[in-house]
Structure formats: structure tokens, C-alpha cells
Amino acid sequence: MVKIERISLEKEGLIKFFSPNEARILELLWKKKKMTSPEIQQQCDDLSLACVAGTLDRLIKSGFVNRTIDETGQRMRYIYTPEGNRQKVGNKICEKIIDCLVDTFGTSTIDTINKNRNRGKLK
């Protein structure tokens, strides 16, 4: 889960940083804001119950998704909400990557970012 060693720059979109199932569920949660697991399962009906459950547990553990327990009805159930929007997750990942680059290459990382900003690649 956004482990530096698992980042695959050659992939497209969110799956650079997440597994395809994690990215799919995150996109769903960003869109709907609040979902139960049967609702998520319904939207990902090509995935098994165990697969969706495992992915949700991993997203919770890594802090990208929150859940609360709802016992109001005749059933105990989780309500899932995303921890921040797409931009917030983006910031979190950027910070992690920049920290890693600074750890390895020191100030030259910051120089490169500044150079790119001056060239107009970064705003």
C-alpha cells in the first residue's frame, strides 16, 4: 500500500501506487463518499467477497479509508468513508516520495524540484 518498493511508474493512473482493486474501491468511495460493504461488493461484482473484504481491511490499515460500525438496524455493518479526497491522498503520496528522495539524494532533490518549477514544469 503505497510502499515505495511497490510503486510502478510504468503503470497508468492510481495503479502506480495502489493495487488495481484498491484503486477501484478508492475511486468508488471518492465518488459516493459513504458506502457499505455490500454496496461496494455490488459495484465490484466480478471480485470475490474475500477479495473485496481483504482490500477494504488493507485500505483501513493504511489509513486511506475510515469505517464506523452501524448497529441501528437489525444488522451490524460497517460504513466506509474515504480519508480525504483524491487531492489529499495525492499530497500524502507526494510527501512520502519526496521524503524518500531527500533521504537518498539529499538537497539535490530540492534543487531539481526548484529547477523544474523555474522551467515551468511545476507551478
Binding site: S37, A53, G54, D57, M76
Partner: peptide, 26 residues
């Protein structure tokens, strides 16, 4: 006892029965 996980779990351990929230939901 209810385990805080979405995974489907049901087992016994030391004279107790453990079920997961994921199981109860379904």
C-alpha cells in the same frame, strides 16, 4: 466475540466463539 474485520471469519479459541463483522453483515 466480534472481530473488527471485514474478512469472513468464524472460529473457536479458548472456550470462546469469534465471528467477524464481515460475517454478521452478510
Amino acid at each position: 466475540r466480534i472481530l473488527d474485520t471485514q474478512r469472513i471469519k468464524a472460529f473457536t479459541y479458548k472456550n470462546k466463539i469469534y465471528l467477524s463483522v464481515g460475517l454478521l453483515e452478510r
